[in-house]
Design a protein around this nucleic acid. Structure first.
Length: 858
DNA sequence: ACCGCCGGGTGCC
DNA sequence: ACCGCCGGGTGCC
């Protein structure tokens, strides 16, 4: 619900470090932002937060037994070795590349073991001087942790007569102001285009001509795959290779990341460019399929694709320029994508690859999929989904067919899907064996700098694929406002990312010229009867909520509040959305809980876009806690796993247990659908839509429309008048099978006579990526909490291939909760701007409770 | 290690 | 001398 607002607050707090400034100096204690801030450290077991307790000087011993190299100023990691046969308190010291350097001296190791094993603090090491002898060296240890553990840590240290120096060891002298930081982040993914990037034509096997920006992308991608030069941040220093970010050295020549992040806005042709890459850049920069002149029919070219390794002719020059580590047996490209875009890949292959090119493309999907690894390895392309990959992975314990094949290239489509490293999908993706790695995404960072880590880890951008170094070199310095940290981040992003937006320009010209898009809000007046019903529900809801506000228990009764708000929103659309309202009065706690869970089921079942307070994304695999808050199962499971018996609900701080989580089945009800259709009545909003559609048809019956609602039931209701008026329509919602979706999209996109004019679309159906460019009108039937969700939906038709101006109509019921939602939406959009623009912190305080009060006009 | 620590040799000034 | 001191042997955890 109001989460969007908090998303921004959290975003700001996380990007810029929550400690520095506070939003809610609000007398109401139970605001969500405070609740989350309160639990933040616990939720956040990631080590980029926490305070510095102090540091002390110690020594590393046993250097002569190990090979790890450390330079002056280099960071080292401390690894507990409880199994060490000589000392169960042993603490091993390793350099950035994981090579052992030595051990912490015994007496100090006792202390560290104690602190580390009891999770009292994180301990980080920096070597202050160069190594002067072969036996020992100094190390500065700093202790980071939660404020509540400070005393315990200090006590441990002083009781063993070590001296804790206060204050930071690495002094951050150059810090940004918040405004500077914000600008830097906004620009993080901008201006990545290197002017040096040329253009490259696709091979002939690609029959669609590439646009200039696509040729640039192809050129860049080929260069990323083929370039054997020393990666960024590395310098040759005598015998060693020296990393300028971590000040570390390695003996072995570091390998360049062969791949990167193609982060173009959606609609700029990432799929086409990737297809062009696959066909154009096989081994040694040679095309995958080469034209051969047929001798029988002169002049006609056919294409022979490389199907066995080592047979392509390679000139010595090209062979030398390519990396010697090339594995000639790795030949296939694996594409992993969300189910919703699987068919898009097949369509685009059909569309962009010449018909006389015989590509072996295998769809690794469905229960009958061929799991033979030789078969898979011999394909040119294998397409699969994240779900199939992770399902296989967990079943096989890591030795799935896809994990056995040595791939030439792995492409993660909608790669931001793996931004949470705790998911099975992400773990499965990291374990793939491949030479080249690509991430395609329109949104490289969604909420948080942390989102980037998993992408960096997938690319194996050393040494940042190890969390500790990412955190120490990038994450923490940046969140603390360190200037060099930010510069490093920018440099790092720049060396692996290409991003252009729809507004980017190539040689002064826009990348693509999209038709105009305009938004108009159509106010809907309720009939007197509807108004009476609405006011009744509103008054009732207000009474309940104002009681919660007065008691300060809004968040404790979150499910109840949500249910009331959803009900009002449903009233605005159509009374038939409400479903049965069970208003029995619960008395026992068990009954009360059951009731809350029922209400949440009601809320989620309508397709309302709820947000998980842990990952800040839309809930996936929703589960409901005992205290009636909704999270993604993997997110909350991780909280419980790491906090064990002390686990608290991130929203209300109530105790939570894994055994008490209630699964939420997404496929739901619809059992009284017939009932809905039999007792049909219209509503003001339905009438408003119908009159728009009828007018449109009479003016121009070639214009196609998307009719979008968050409530799938509303779509069902709308089918009735559409049929009555003889509109041909299709429907696309989250419950449909992949096959059916593809059919529906194809039918809608087809310009064949008699193809549908209207698509009923559930707001979240299919996620991103689908192409509905046949439509140029969008009717948003109900306001969404997340303006971005609406934008994404509109982007499905306002994209490459759109020939007409796009007109968006938002229906908003006058004098209703919807109107207030729109107001809050606007505030949200301004919030970040305002937060940085104003000097007075009291002006920017907004609380969840305030928001609910605004909604209910309390 | 140009250290600390150990343990054997040694012992007035 | 149940000490101090000397100087050789020795060395991560």
């Amino acid at each position: 619900m109001q989460k969007g607002l908090y998303k921004y607050i959290l975003l700001i707090q996380r990007w810029f470090g929550g400690a520095g400034f506070s939003f809610a100096d609000d007398p109401v204690t139970e605001t969500l932002s405070q609740a989350i801030r309160g639990t933040g450290e616990e939720l956040d077991r990631e080590p980029d937060t926490g305070v510095l307790f102090g540091s002390l000087r110690g020594s590393v011993v046993g250097l002569r037994y190990y090979t790890g190299v450390v330079n002056k100023g280099e960071m080292v990691s401390l690894v507990r070795q409880p199994q060490n046969p000589y000392d169960r308190n042993a603490v091993m010291v390793a350099n950035v590349y994981g090579s052992q350097v030595g051990h912490i001296k015994r007496e100090l190791a006792v202390l560290l073991a104690n602190i580390m094993d009891n999770n009292l603090a994180r301990v980080e090491g920096v070597v202050p001087f160069g190594v002067t002898n072969q036996f020992t060296m100094s190390v500065v240890l700093s202790f980071w942790g939660r404020e509540e553990n400070r005393d315990a840590v200090v006590r441990q240290i002083t009781s063993r007569s070590f001296k804790l120096q206060s204050g930071p060891t690495g002094t951050h002298t150059h810090t940004h102001t918040l405004t500077q930081l914000k600008n830097a982040f906004d620009n993080l993914f901008e201006n990545l285009m290197d002017d040096k990037i040329g253009e490259r034509e696709a091979v002939e096997a690609v029959c669609t001509p590439l646009l200039p920006h696509q040729k640039q992308a192809l050129s860049w991608m080929c260069a990323c795959e083929n370039n054997a030069a020393l990666p960024h941040f590395w310098e040759v220093k005598g015998e060693l290779f020296y990393n300028t970010l971590t000040h570390s050295s390695v003996r072995e020549r570091p390998r360049r990341v062969r791949g990167g992040i193609l982060a173009d806005d959606m609609g700029l042709g990432k799929t086409l460019t990737t297809i062009a890459l696959i066909l154009s850049n096989f081994h040694h920069g040679k095309p995958l399929c080469e034209p051969v002149i047929s001798t029988s029919r002169k002049g006609k070219t056919a294409f022979a694709c490389n199907t066995s390794s080592g047979k392509s002719l390679v000139s010595p020059v090209e062979a030398a320029s390519s990396q010697s580590t090339d594995d000639p047996a790795a030949r296939a490209t694996l594409i992993i994508c969300p189910l919703s875009v699987l068919s898009n890949w097949l369509d685009q292959l059909d569309q962009h690859v010449r018909a006389d090119v015989k590509l072996n493309v295998y769809l690794y999907y469905g229960s009958e999929r061929n799991r033979d690894t030789h078969f898979l390895s011999s394909q040119h392309m294998v397409l699969t989904t994240y779900n199939v990959l992770s399902a296989d992975y967990s079943v096989s314990g890591g030795a799935s067919p896809l994990h056995t094949v040595r791939w030439l290239r792995v492409v993660l489509d909608e790669g931001h899907i793996i931004r949470n490293p705790n998911t099975q999908q992400s773990k499965a993706v990291l374990k793939l064996n491949t030479q080249r790695r690509w991430i395609l995404t329109g949104t490289p960072i969604q909420n948080n700098l942390r989102d980037l880590w998993m992408l960096v880890a997938f690319l194996r951008l050393k040494p940042f694929d190890v969390r500790e170094w990412w955190n120490r070199v990038i994450q923490r310095p940046v969140t603390q406002g360190d200037k060099t940290g930010l510069q490093n981040l920018q440099a790092l992003v720049k060396c692996v990312t290409l991003r252009r937006t729809k507004t980017s320009r190539v040689c002064g010209r826009p990348l693509v010229s999209l038709p105009e898009r305009s938004v108009r809000i159509e106010e809907v007046e309720l009939t007197q009867k509807e108004r009476e019903e609405y006011e009744l529900a509103r008054t009732e809801g207000r009474t309940t909520i104002s009681r919660y506000v007065a008691e300060g228990t809004v968040l404790r009764n979150y499910a109840d509040v949500l249910a009331i708000l959803v009900r009002l929103r449903q009233f605005c659309c159509h009374p038939g959305l409400l479903g049965k309202t069970t208003t029995h009065t619960a008395v026992t706690p068990a009954e009360l809980r059951e009731r809350l869970i029922m209400k949440l089921r009601l809320v989620l079942g309508t397709g309302s876009d709820e947000e998980c307070a842990v990952c800040l994304d839309s809930v996936r695999l929703p589960v409901i806690t005992h205290c009636a808050h909704v999270y993604c199962r993997p997110c909350i499971a991780e909280v419980i796993r790491s906090e064990q018996e002390q686990a608290r609900c991130p929203l209300c701080r109530g105790q939570i247990k894994a055994s008490e989580l209630v699964e939420f089945p997404l496929e739901e009800e619809e059992e009284e659908e017939s009932n809905l259709l039999e007792n049909w009545r219209s509503s003001s909003k339905v009438e408003a839509l119908m009159s728009s559609l009828l007018r449109l048809r009479s003016e121009d019956d070639s214009i196609r429309s998307l009719v979008v609602s968050q409530f799938t039931r509303f779509l069902t209701i709308l089918e009735i008048p559409l049929r009555e008026e003889g509109f041909k329509f299709v429907r696309l919602d989250g419950t449909m099978s992949q096959k059916r979706r593809a059919q529906v999209i194809q039918e809608f996109q087809s310009d064949a006579p008699g193809s549908p004019l209207i698509m009923l679309l559930s707001l979240k159906a299919g996620g991103v990526g689908i192409n509905l460019s046949a439509a140029s009108r969008v009717f948003l039937m109900d306001p969404a909490w997340n303006p971005a969700a609406e934008d994404q939906c509109v982007d499905r038709c306002h994209r490459l291939g759109q020939k007409r101006d796009v007109v968006i109509t938002k229906f908003i019921v006058k004098g209703s909760v919807e109107e207030n939602m729109v107001k809050i939406q606007r505030q949200k959009q301004d919030l970040v701007e305002k937060a940085f623009g104003t000097k007075n912190p009291s002006e920017r305080k907004t609380s969840r409770v305030d928001e609910i009060r605004a909604l209910m006009e309390l």
